[in-house]
Amino acid sequence: MWDFLPHFLHQALFGAAAAAGFGVLFNFGLRALPWCAAAGALALMVRTGGQELAWSLEGATFAAAIVTSCAVSALRGQLGPACNAVALAGCIPMVPGAFFGQALLGFFALTAPHPVDAVEIFVSAAEHIIRVIFTLAAMGAGLAIPAQLLKNQDF
């Protein structure tokens, strides 16, 4: 249990930093950035916990998005209409951009005149792209379901 703690905290810390960094890019105000960071830390903690319990990446991402969306919905009195955006910023560190890139690079490699291990490359790239689609879908659904059920105000 305690062996796992440093990894858990590491993921939370860098989830927070990534969410806050993208919060600046999305032009969140300085007062909203700590909320983005907290949402990012929470999302990564839940996802890391899920993966430690041997959940799939997609399942853990879904759980993380649901928990993050519920948590910011509970704070909607303070956050107001910004709550959905804060939840989204918190989940940005879970966007599988690297998988997407690796999948496309794999498909590029298949276009070489005589690719070595073409089947392996294709299977790996296809696996990556499937994971991208399912992870994005899990994240989007996880964010949308609580926001819809709890009727978060957009205005």
């Binding site: 590491h10 993921q11 860098f14 989830g15 930093a17 990534a18 969410a19 806050a20 960094g21 993208f22 919060g23 600046v24 890019l25 032009n27 105000g29 990564l44 560190p93 951009g97 690297a98």
Partner: peptide
């Protein structure tokens, strides 16, 4: 409506990239 300055945004985005990197 205020926007963060380009240099501040650049530093923040660089931090986000390297944080993503640590997660990867």
């Amino acid at each position: 409506t205020p926007r963060h300055s380009p240099w501040f945004t650049a530093i923040a985005v660089g931090l986000a990239c390297t944080s993503f990197g640590r997660l990867l």
